[in-house]
Design a protein around this nucleic acid. Structure first.
Lengths: 224, 224
DNA sequence: GATTGTCGGATTGTCAACAATTCGGCTTTG
DNA sequence: CAAAGCCGAATTGTTGACAATCCGACAATC
């Protein structure tokens, strides 16, 4: 049983699946600069695939919001305005509060252990400065906890759609400020309240947590 | 200016766009029965198009949740379980409450007039029994008001993703019960509170409104 | 001088054929 | 008789070529 739990889902073998992953990575890491223009033919050539599966992959990223398609003009990497960011954060706040409400009574000891291990991983990852995007992923993985625990598949799906946009913005912000991502202490209270008995306090904290995240990162957006 | 405002966006000219529309219509009206098996080749043949654009259209509907794709086995029209329905309603309740919070201070006289006209249209549509799906669309159009008014594009997008699932279920339920869709009076209080000054009362009513909608329709689902 | 018409280049949209993968049942084997 | 291996049909995945569309700039016209 324990050996089965350590099994990781085998990597997507279809070209479309791999292309989605790769394009998403390229976008959220900023390797494809925001606003950059792409064309299907170029991309297909660069990736060494044909346009069929590429188009399907592109359409998925467009749907998520990472790419913007301007018909007959080209494909563009999304740019984030202040309004976009505010929308992302306000929707996220609401989703996460809902997730905690749904997950609250499902917090078994195992689940709380899982939460702690995610936090540990975040702390560890912040320590090692090798992969600059590791901490971002670790933080989002920590926050995914409540969504997964909620057992609400539609909610989890919404979160998974929102996540890449956050990832994208985090990386963009990190790059612009040359900073090392999330702080070590910023999630201590989050974990403590999430493990505690006061749901209302947790929900209140989420408002603060999110607002703080928004405010500390909103500075350098040009209010286009 | 007034003549320009009456212009409607010209219908999607791409095969993919039209296919998405048509497939969605077929699914939400129940013309393609829930659980029904489809194959790309069959569909492409029946629609008179090739598999390229069809695949892209399919993928969009799969993403929304109207179709489920079982690789190498076929494509299936989604089936709705009791849990699905509860998830749809709980998420919708949360989204709509949020929408009203965001839209509350934006309720201009014009906006309220718009709301009333949507309600009028719903009442009218219920009267004429020609198109059995008219009332469903009219009701969803009424509920779209708060999302559109909120100015929150991400929120509106979430609603637009959820909507077809509701539509699908409404039609399914209506067909099973041979009923004429929404009641005339069921939205009176909704409109009155939405036009009023007590946001809290509106939010409370949304809880009731949704729970009622869920309870009156949950009966015939086989709890698979 | 501003509006309308036209043309070339670029991009996306579409198609039909081909390749790869999977599943279910049958056979084989111990 | 149970379990593993194998085979063929069905389905999706992929490709490269072709067609339709759109944009921007330049020319023509009023």
């Amino acid at each position: 049983m324990s050996s089965l739990a350590s099994l990781k889902p085998l990597e997507d073998t279809t070209i479309r699946g791999r292309t989605v992953d790769q394009l998403r990575r390229l976008v959220v890491t900023g390797e494809l600069a925001a606003g950059m223009r792409l064309t299907e033919t170029e991309l297909a050539c660069a990736l060494g695939i044909s346009r069929g599966p590429l188009r399907e992959a592109i359409r998925e990223l467009v749907d998520i919001g990472l790419l913007v398609s301007k018909p007959y003009k080209g494909l563009f990497v999304r740019e984030i305005t202040r309004k976009d960011l505010e929308e992302i954060y306000s929707l996220r706040t609401m989703l996460e509060k809902f997730a905690f409400q749904e997950a609250w009574d499902k917090r078994t000891p195992e689940a709380l252990e899982d939460l702690n291990s995610r936090n540990e991983r975040l702390i560890t990852t912040i320590g090692t400065g090798s992969d600059p995007f590791g901490p971002i992923e670790a933080e989002l993985h920590l926050h995914s906890w409540c969504y997964e625990l909620s057992g609400h598949s539609l909610l989890l799906q919404s979160w998974n759609r929102l996540k890449p946009n956050l990832q994208f913005y985090f990386a963009m912000h990190q790059q612009a400020h040359a900073r090392q991502g999330p702080e070590r202490k910023s999630h201590d209270l989050y974990i403590r309240l999430a493990s505690g008995t006061d749901l209302e306090a947790m929900l209140d904290h989420l408002n603060d947590h999110m607002r703080q995240g928004l405010e500390t990162t909103i500075g350098f957006i040009n209010t286009a």
